[in-house]
C-alpha cells in the first residue's frame, strides 16, 4: 500500500439542517487517482471543499501532509495549500481582466514560482491566441480551460478537480486528464469528481462512491470489477450498491 497522504476521520459537514457529509473515514495515498462518484448532492464537492478548507467540517478531522483540519480546532495555516492545485466545478473570474492578467496575477499571488502565460498547457489547450481577451467575453468551456491551467501549472503534489471535463471539448478533456495522470505518475495524489464512467475507468486507481453524505465504498477499480464479475464500471457500480445496501465507511 502506498504512503497515505490525506486521512479523513469521522468527517461530517452540516449546512443548516442538511448533512452533506456524515462520518466519512477514508485515506488517499501518494501516486494514485481517486475518482469520487455518486449522484448529485451526494457530498463529493463538500468532501473536496473540506480538504481545501473552503468549508469547515462540523465533526471529525483531516490530516493532510502534516496539517490537521479539525472541526474543533483552529483554522489551518494557509501554507499547506502551496502544492495543491484545484479546478472548481464553476469557473468565474474578475470580468474585466484578460487571461494573461489572470495568469500573471495567480503567479504573483503564489510567489511567481510557476510558469506564466507561456506555459505549455496554455498552448495545448488552444488559449494562446486568446490570452488578451477579457475573461467576461469567454465561453464556459474556455473558462474551464483557464481554470485547468491555473490548477495544473504550479505542478501540484495534490490535484483536486471537480468535474473537470464538464463543458470541455473531447480533445481538451483528454489533454487535461492526461495532465492529471502525469501528476499521479510523478507521485502526486489526484482526486477527481466525475459522472462520466468512461473517464473514471480510464483514469481511476480507486473509486470512492458517495451517497447522501455517506461513503458507500472506496475500492480499487480492479477489486470492484472482480467482486461484481463484470468488465465495465458502469455495470459494476449498481451491483456494488445492491451488495452494500447499508452505508459503510471503508478506508480502502
Amino acid at each position: 500500500m502506498a504512503e497515505a497522504r490525506i486521512t479523513c476521520t469521522g468527517l461530517s459537514k452540516r449546512y443548516d439542517k442538511l448533512w452533506a457529509l456524515r462520518g466519512v473515514d477514508c485515506t488517499f495515498s501518494r501516486g494514485e487517482v481517486v475518482m469520487l462518484v455518486g449522484p448529485n448532492a451526494s457530498g463529493k464537492t463538500t468532501l473536496i471543499k473540506c480538504l481545501l478548507a473552503l468549508v469547515h467540517p462540523t465533526e471529525g478531522r483531516i490530516h493532510l501532509d502534516g496539517t490537521t483540519i479539525d472541526a474543533r480546532g483552529p483554522v489551518p495555516h494557509p501554507g499547506y495549500r502551496e502544492r495543491i492545485g484545484y479546478m472548481p466545478q464553476i469557473s468565474q473570474f474578475p470580468a474585466s481582466l484578460s487571461i494573461r492578467q489572470l495568469l500573471e496575477m495567480m503567479a504573483d499571488i503564489r510567489g511567481g514560482a510557476e510558469g506564466g502565460a507561456e506555459d505549455s498547457l496554455v498552448e495545448e489547450l488552444g488559449l494562446t491566441a486568446q490570452l488578451d481577451k477579457r475573461l467576461s467575453t469567454l465561453s464556459g468551456g474556455t473558462k474551464q480551460k483557464v481554470s485547468a491551467v491555473l490548477a495544473l501549472r504550479m505542478r501540484p503534489d495534490i490535484l483536486v478537480m471537480d468535474e473537470p471535463t464538464a463543458g470541455l471539448d473531447p480533445v481538451s478533456a483528454k489533454r487535461v486528464l492526461s495532465r492529471a495522470a502525469a501528476v499521479r505518475d510523478a507521485g502526486g495524489t489526484v482526486l477527481i469528481t466525475s459522472h462520466l464512467m468512461e473517464e473514471v475507468e480510464s483514469l481511476a486507481d480507486r473509486v470512492a462512491y458517495l451517497e447522501d453524505g455517506h461513503l458507500r465504498f472506496l475500492l480499487p477499480v480492479s477489486e470492484i470489477l472482480e467482486r461484481t464479475g463484470v468488465s465495465r464500471l458502469s455495470q459494476a457500480l449498481p451491483r456494488m450498491l445492491e451488495a452494500n445496501a447499508r452505508p459503510m465507511s471503508y478506508a480502502g
Binding site: L52, M106, I109, R110
Partner: peptide, 17 residues
Amino acid sequence: YDIQEFTQLLAVQPIAR
C-alpha cells in the same frame, strides 16, 4: 456576490483569508 467564485479560487491559494 459577483466575485464569490473568484474569492473561492483565492481561498485555495496559500494566502490567509
